[in-house]
Write a protein that binds this DNA or RNA. Structure first.
Lengths: 106, 106
DNA sequence: ACATTAATTTAGATATAACTTAAATATTAA
DNA sequence: TTAATATTTAAGTTATATCTAAATTAATGT
């Protein structure tokens, strides 16, 4: 039972490579669970459990269509990660010079 | 399929809240281990172990000064995270409109 | 109603992570 | 050289993650 911590933890959710891969697949468009399972070498249940972690972190949304559960990416949830990472850009920029400023969109 | 541990795993390193907090402290400037330990409610050894994970992920550097080991942030290592996250910005932008474009630095 | 399909949940096994205390290493100070 | 300081590494414990197989829920098809 993958207990998803008290707080929906986006950082924890994307720490697992399979979960990042799931998100990458969903980036191309929404998919039912079976289509995701087909991309991995683990059981249906394992993917379902990963989807739960992603959903509780707000990284994916689920739309139920008959007996198909269709998942889609919710990239807004990555905001937390982007914001935390962005706090390092000043230091980064200082060290890298022009390249850093470019990454900063300036 | 992305295998875990293929490379020093930055995503895993920043998944742990205490490790993010350590990085946040180092963002203000380099510090010896004792100064970091003082900010937490765990043992010296625990922090030392977290520092090892961060160092192996390339997120911190260590400078040995006498019997002090002075750590500093290596924000370039967050590049991996920023790049992966950035792949979601097109979808994001599409959904959020102007705000998305702003985040994109346009 | 019953079987089939799609997915989730539960239970249990095993692996990995995070912590503690104690021992080890290395540097400085008496 | 012995003691004190600063940190790491090792050993062992406990907690958490991830996986499989089996049970469960729910919708569809016959």
């Amino acid at each position: 039972m993958p207990e998803p911590g008290e707080t929906p933890d986006v950082f924890h959710a994307i720490a697992e490579p399979k979960r990042r891969h799931i998100l990458d697949l969903l980036l191309e468009g929404e998919r039912p669970v079976q289509a995701l399972v087909a991309e991995f070498d683990v059981s249906f249940a394992a993917i379902s459990q990963h989807l739960r972690v992603l959903r509780e972190a707000g990284l994916v949304a689920r739309r139920i269509d008959g007996r198909k559960h269709v998942y889609s990416a919710e990239p807004e949830a990555l905001d937390t990660v982007l914001e935390w990472t962005a706090r390092y850009r000043p230091l980064w920029r200082k060290r890298l010079g022009r390249l850093g400023r470019h990454l900063d969109g300036q």
